[in-house]
Design a protein around this nucleic acid. Structure first.
Lengths: 205, 205
DNA sequence: TAGATTGTTAATCGATTAACAATC
DNA sequence: TAGATTGTTAATCGATTAACAATC
C-alpha cells in the first residue's frame, strides 16, 4: 500500500508496537495476539489489527502473531531494518546524555558525529566521539550522506541551526529545543519538550 | 466547563498555544489572532478558536487576542499559574541534564530533589541540588507533598521505581525510560523517547 | 472437531472545518 | 461606517469500534 494512504496517526503507533514486541521477546515469548498487545499498550485489539492491516496480513487466525516475524516486518515498514547515520548538534549536558545513550544503534540509528561551536568543547571526547566544530558540519553531512539530525542546542540558537540543517539536506530533525521550528514541508520535525509533557499532565492535577 | 468534557487532544494542544504566545510576547507583540497562531503552529484558525472556546471567550471580534491575557488564562487552565514541586529520579547523564535545565521554573515546575541509588553518586552536587539516596524518597514526597516526578533511570529499573512512585501518591510521571509503564488509571504518564521519534520520522524517509 | 484469533466491513463515534452572524 | 476577527453552528471528514466470516 502506498505510503500516503496510511494515516499519520497509524504511523505514530507503529514504533510503540515495535517497542512492545521487543519487550515481549525479551520475556521469551514467541507468539502474541492483538488482544495481548492491546492490553499492554492500553489500546483496543481492533485498532491494532486495523493498523497492521494497512501494510499486510502478518498474523494467523486462531494463533496470533509470531513476534520475531512481526518485528521484522515493522522494522521494514518503518525503514529501521538498516542503520541511519545521525548528526548530533550540541554538546551541552543534553547532547552528552544523548551521545552516551546506548539504545539507538539496535533501533536503527547511529550517532556518527557531535558538533558544537564553543571552542572549549571542540576536540573533547563524548563517549566514542569527539566534538567537532560546527564549521565541519557541511562536509560531514555531505561525506556521510547524513539525512537525520538531533538538535540539542539552546533555544536562541535553534532556529538558525535548523535553517542550516535544512539547507544541507537534512530531512528529519529530532528537536530538543523548546521552540517551534519553521521548516519546509519536505522536512520532518519531531519535537521533544519536557515542559509540554509536564504542562499537559498538570491540566489533570 | 467541566474538565472531562474537554477532549484530550484539545488539552494536548494547549501547552503548544502557551509556548507560542510566550514566543510572540518575546517578539514584543501584544495582540495576536487565531490566524497568526495557526500559521505559526501549522494548524487551522478554526481549530484554535474552537479549542479555546471550550474554556471561554478570550478574544475580541475584529481585534484578536491580547497575548498577556491569553497567556494568563491558559496558565490557569493548565494549572501552571503556580509552581509544582517535582522529584527527579536518576542522576545519570540525562538526570543531570534535566537538573541543569533552566526552563522549568517559569513554566510551572521546580525540581526540588534528585535521587539515585548508586552510593558513588549520593551526596554529589548537581546544579543547586545534592543527589539523595532513593531511601529518602518517601520522606521527601510526604514532607513536600510532591505529586509530580520525572523518571530518568535505566529501562530495567523503571518499572520498579514507577511502582514505588505510584505507591507514594505521585500522580504525574514524565517517563524517559524506554518502556511502557503500567500504572493505575488515576496516574498520568507522559512518555519521552527519542527512538520513538526517530522511528516515526524514518517511516517518511 | 472445537476453540481461538485474524483481517475486514459497516456502523459509530468524534474531531476538524467551513461558514457566518455577532460585534469590536 | 468599513474592515476585521471572534465564537459557534452545522456539515464534513476521518478514526475507532463492533461484529463476524474466514480459517488456523
Amino acid at each position: 500500500m502506498s505510503q500516503d494512504q496510511v494515516p499519520e496517526i497509524v504511523v505514530d503507533r507503529l514504533p510503540l508496537y515495535l517497542r512492545m514486541l521487543e519487550f515481549l521477546k525479551k520475556e521469551d515469548k514467541a507468539i502474541t495476539s492483538s488482544q495481548e498487545l492491546a492490553d499492554r499498550l492500553g489500546l483496543s485489539s481492533a485498532q491494532i489489527r486495523k493498523d497492521l492491516s494497512y501494510f499486510g496480513g502478518f498474523g494467523k487466525q486462531g494463533t496470533g502473531y509470531a513476534i520475531d516475524y512481526l518485528i521484522k516486518q515493522l522494522r521494514q515498514i518503518l525503514h529501521v531494518d538498516r542503520v541511519w547515520d545521525v548528526a548530533l548538534i550540541g554538546a551541552g549536558d543534553l547532547g552528552r546524555a544523548l551521545a552516551h545513550y546506548q539504545g539507538f544503534e539496535q533501533q536503527g540509528f547511529r550517532l556518527v558525529a557531535i558538533f558544537d561551536n564553543a571552542p572549549k568543547k571542540i576536540g573533547t571526547a563524548v563517549g566514542d566521539l569527539h566534538v567537532q566544530d560546527m564549521a565541519e558540519l557541511p562536509r560531514l553531512v555531505r561525506e556521510k550522506t547524513i539525512r537525520v539530525a538531533i538538535l540539542a542546542v539552546p533555544a536562541d540558537a535553534a532556529a538558525t541551526v535548523a535553517a542550516k540543517l535544512v539547507e544541507l539536506g537534512i530531512c528529519a530533525i529530532l528537536n530538543y529545543a523548546p521552540i517551534t521550528l519553521n521548516v519546509p514541508p519536505n522536512v520532518r520535525v519531531y519535537h521533544i519538550d519536557p515542559v509540554i509533557g509536564l504542562q499537559n499532565m498538570a491540566y489533570y492535577l
